[in-house]
Design a protein around this nucleic acid. Structure first.
Length: 362
DNA sequence: AACACGGGGCA
DNA sequence: TGCCCAGTGTT
């Protein structure tokens, strides 16, 4: 790593950065106060997720679960429903588990100790630093993608930010420049700068409050940074799914396992289709019979849905079917159209449901 | 260290 | 299309 700034420069940098933040920061729901629980919830939601996406979820979540006790005592299905569509669902399961721990072991008070807080489920180095600094003004680094981008430019750091080791490098660098008298504003300012000015593709250096401290700008290399190696692309899978209904208009849905992809969410029964000789329809019928003892005749294809994850792609062929009989307790649950609203579905299966409803209209 | 884990927005 | 986003847990 290149030479760090002098002590005088550090003070100057802190003042320019914090001064800018105090003047230009966005008004956001989680900035209304510094309630540690609110800060915590917002930070978990913001992991790998944009501010604009998070806002409505945050407002709804805080209305339903306003404090640690409310979330600790809440029904898990209701909590999942409040997270429906946000993605990375293990975040909310871990959050509820951690809040239950706070509720029971810390009398409902989020511990103001980085070591204790950092041991909680779903709290990694970033979330630990963010919550400790923003809520309790404890000078801990909070190194996220923004901070690595901003600091890689400021300090002209050319290490690959995709490598786990590099995050530690930035952690060390931040410890040397963090404003110990106002770590809350300092950390938030760095992230705000990354979001508003020091953006990935075309940073607005002419508007940047810390341009004079930026080594990359000095050398005209801001667009070369940060260095990040490419990630490999997704694998493509072929699936077949069935919207199963009975003569009374009920739906049969399935709860996904408690681990792995989309854990604990609800879905329409489906399977991966791998056969080269059988049709998808036949393969799905066989699966439904063997897995759920379902007796039915699938109708024609309702349509095809593509859904892209960060690591894979689902190509889902959708069928509709009228059920004659289904074995009891075999994994499928019968729900009315009205009850469907209470279950949390991943977006891929919301698309399936929508496609089915569109097909019924015609 | 590498990979699993969602979903959406933007050039 | 590919990249990026206020990352964490598992192997």
């Amino acid at each position: 790593m290149k030479n760090l700034l002098s002590e005088l420069e550090i003070k100057d940098f802190q003042q320019d950065l914090i001064g800018w933040f105090q003047k230009e920061q966005r008004i956001l729901p989680w900035r209304e106060n510094s309630d540690p629980y609110r800060v915590w919830v917002s930070e978990v939601m913001l992991q790998q997720t944009r501010v604009d996406t998070v806002i409505p979820y945050f407002l709804n979540f805080m209305e339903k679960f306003p404090d640690p006790a409310a979330l600790a005592n809440a029904d898990e299905e209701q909590v999942m429903k409040a997270w429906e569509g946000l993605g990375y669902y293990s975040r909310v399961r871990n959050l509820q588990a951690a809040v239950r721990e706070v509720h029971e072991s810390y009398d409902g008070i989020v511990p103001a100790d980085p070591d204790k807080f950092g041991e909680l489920k779903g709290v990694g180095p970033y979330t630990k630093g963010a919550v400790m600094s923003i809520a309790y003004n404890i000078p801990e680094p909070a190194v996220d993608g923004n901070v690595m981008r901003v600091m890689s430019r400021i300090l002209l750091i050319e290490e690959d930010i995709a490598k786990p080791k590099t995050r530690k490098l930035f952690d060390t660098a931040i410890r040397e420049v963090i404003a110990k008298d106002n770590p809350s504003d300092f950390n938030q300012a760095l992230m705000e700068l990354g979001a508003l000015i020091c953006t990935p593709s075309s940073p607005s250096c002419l508007l940047c409050p810390v341009r004079d401290h930026c080594q990359a700008f000095e050398e005209g290399r801001q667009k070369d940074l940060p260095i990040k190696s490419k990630k490999k692309k997704q694998k493509s899978l072929l699936l077949a799914a069935a919207v199963l209904t009975d003569s009374e208009g009920n739906f049969w849905i399935h709860k996904r396992p408690s681990e792995g992809l989309l854990a604990n969410l609800w879905e329409f029964p489906n399977c991966e289709t791998v056969s080269e000789t059988m049709t998808q329809k036949a393969e799905l019928e066989l699966f439904l019979h063997k897995e759920y003892g379902a007796l039915m005749e699938l109708e024609t294809i309702e349509g095809i849905i593509q859904h892209v994850f960060s690591h894979l792609i689902w190509n889902i062929t959708l069928f509709a079917g009228k059920v004659e009989r289904i074995e009891n307790g075999a994994g499928l649950v019968k729900v009315t159209e009205e009850e469907m609203k209470a279950y949390a579905f991943p977006v891929s299966h919301q698309k399936i449901y929508q496609l089915y409803l569109d097909g019924q209209k015609k």
